[in-house]
């Protein structure tokens, strides 16, 4: 039991400096900009072919999604010789189910408009991590359906952008959007009023300096949110919460 308790006790494993420099520092923002625009451009181009092109998938005379239907038909086919495009039976069954139910009619809209949306989000740098995640999911599905093309390269770039979500949109709208919205563990000014009631302290538990909702770093213990005056105090509080929060426990 002691070994199990020791194995699962809470430990925060810090990233090494190199990882923080690459994925969490704005000095590499121009490189992230290049990768982001390259990926966004390709998604926008792919979406343009499906929305706008001569062989577009949607808004055509007759039923929509015939291009997608042709793609799925090729993907689920099992040739007499050689290996089929799809390696996993469950994925072939999944596509066959969608084909049999005619889902290509509405799914073509999802894919076409989704590709355009991901492309625009990556180019303007808004919610870059989420956009890259959706893009990677589409790459994954194209790859599972046996279509390689440039999907492997796009998937790798998308994964890198997901890891670097904090700085990948720095030269973009995320420069302003992320600090305003904040994160679930550190809400920004936009959510100031939402989280105001849940904050447990009015002064920094470490040094007793005043704190401000929406600006001060936050930590959560026992379901309550505690604000620290600065990142250094937050680190001390996170490392030894019982030391700094114990005196306040008895107070109402």
């Amino acid at each position: 039991m002691a070994a199990l308790a020791r194995a699962f006790e809470r430990r925060e494993l810090r990233d090494p400096g190199l990882v923080r420099a690459v994925f969490g520092n704005t000095w590499l923002a121009p490189i992230w900009l290049f990768l982001r625009l390259y990926l966004g451009y390709h998604w926008l181009m792919a979406g343009a072919h499906k929305v706008w092109g001569g062989s577009r998938w949607i808004a055509v005379p007759g039923p929509d999604g015939l291009g997608l239907k042709a793609f799925w038909d090729r993907a689920v086919a099992i040739p007499q010789q050689g290996s089929p495009p799809i390696s996993f039976d469950w994925y072939r069954n999944f596509l066959t189910f969608m084909l049999d139910h005619g889902w290509y009619r509405w799914f073509s809209w999802v894919i076409a408009l989704g590709e355009v949306a991901v492309g625009i989000a990556l180019i303007v740098g808004a919610f870059v991590g989420i956009a890259a995640l959706f893009g990677a999911f589409m790459n994954f599905n194209f790859l599972m359906a046996g279509s390689a093309s440039i999907n492997p390269l796009m998937f790798v770039i998308a994964m890198l952008i997901i890891f670097g979500w904090k700085t990948a949109g720095w030269i973009g709208l995320d420069r302003w959007v992320l600090p305003t919205l904040g994160t679930p563990w550190q809400p920004g000014p936009a959510f100031k009023s939402v989280f105001r009631r849940r904050v447990a302290n009015e002064a920094c538990p470490v040094c007793q300096m005043p704190v401000e909702v929406g600006r001060s770093p936050t930590s959560v213990f026992n379901g309550l949110m505690y604000l620290s005056c600065c990142p250094v105090c937050k680190e001390r509080l996170d490392a030894e919460p019982t030391r700094y929060l114990a005196p306040a426990a008895g107070t109402p």
Binding site: L44, A48, V124
Partner: peptide, 10 residues
């Protein structure tokens, strides 16, 4: 930016 990117690409 969004409009320019869409117009150029399309």
């Amino acid at each position: 930016v969004a409009l320019t990117a869409v117009l150029i690409t399309f």
